[in-house]
Write a protein that binds this DNA or RNA. Sequence first.
DNA 1: ACCTGTATCAAACGTATGTTTTAAACAAAT
DNA 2: ATTTGTTTAAAACATACGTTTGATACAGGT
Lengths: 222, 222
Amino acid sequence: MGQSQTVDRILDAAEELFAERGFSETSLRMITGKADVNLAAVNYHFGSKKALIQAVFARFLTPFCESLESAFDELERDADGGPPCLEAVLKALTVTVVEMPRKHDRSISIYMRLQGLAYTQSQGHLRRFLEQEFSHTFGRFMRLLKGATPQLSAVDRYWRIQFMLGATAFTMSSSDALSGILLNKLGVESTVEEIVGQLVPFLTAGMQAPATAPVGQIRGSA
Amino acid sequence: MGQSQTVDRILDAAEELFAERGFSETSLRMITGKADVNLAAVNYHFGSKKALIQAVFARFLTPFCESLESAFDELERDADGGPPCLEAVLKALTVTVVEMPRKHDRSISIYMRLQGLAYTQSQGHLRRFLEQEFSHTFGRFMRLLKGATPQLSAVDRYWRIQFMLGATAFTMSSSDALSGILLNKLGVESTVEEIVGQLVPFLTAGMQAPATAPVGQIRGSA
DNA sequence: ACCTGTATCAAACGTATGTTTTAAACAAAT
DNA sequence: ATTTGTTTAAAACATACGTTTGATACAGGT
């Protein structure tokens, strides 16, 4: 058998457990236990735990970046010449996220949470891996954002992009928990689609806020 | 000696290391090594690693919440009767953060990063501890936000508050790294004060964005 | 001087981790 | 049928972890 199913079983188990508990808090024994494969299989197929983490990201990020590049192609074709507007860029991103192929319903929040963990858990090797592997798509997204916000100074744009990333990564990385709280408090169900539907206008408005004034005295209320 | 300085040395070392590396990735041996105290001192003075984590948060969060409550008092006094406006609420928060008493320059970003970790690292005991210890101030902040955004539905407000928290926690928790990148790319120095000065208009605009439409088909660009 | 409670120290404990080893099972090719 | 290369299996490996122990030092009170 050329491609064993063991590899996929490990990846499936790992991406769920990593998303639930983080990287350091998930042991190889938990993963192989859930995947119902032998402990040594991880090191045999992937070489190390670090390499497994990278493989988990590569498996869902590679097709995602391809879809995203296609969406960007279409975006620039439609806008022939001029730069696409901010809302269109963000919509292209979120639609690509929502339309991501997935094995089951939870998949999207799992991927979102993994993406959030990649930012917040300080796994140096992961950051390096993602940078050298997916920097092309990320750079293109940045250039589109620049074209869509010509009124911003480079410094303002830089910080606002970080704010965007933060709001997205944070919300998405806890989307399950946050949805649960909302369900308890207000009795409202919410899907990933609805959350990103809420995100886009928030981010768009934030990016287009008037230029900032230096922080000084407190402004009175009302 | 009634109050040993060992306790403070441990807390100082722990808050720095936790902020740099996260909780699970920081061992008691690293902490006691940096603090130059005996390994057993942590369990002697705090009881366990979990209790140490909580003590680190209690030490900087307790005085911070007191200052914040005072700022809220002043806010409501100035606005006699009516609810303070959104920008005033956020300014009160950020000014309190910036004026936080600190031992050295790095302190603020350390506290910000810790606060971010409290959200993203799934330490159940920490979340429970913070909830029961500081829920009063947090709840008051939430009520102020509610009064400042009467136009929002409860669901919209809930999600936008999460977006705010995310943008803030993420940016502040990486403010050192992000400032460094900005310095490299554009040669611009930036302080925590300036970052929060950028944050407020972004968040204000986001919170006041027009109500959301459900995500459906892709809207064309331009 | 003699206790008494507190604090520090070196050393060890038990457990869990990532990784390696050795042997067996298996499929495909000769 | 034998061989070959790949995959699984059980067990052990070395290391690092949080925690506990027991001895020692030292303070203040009587």
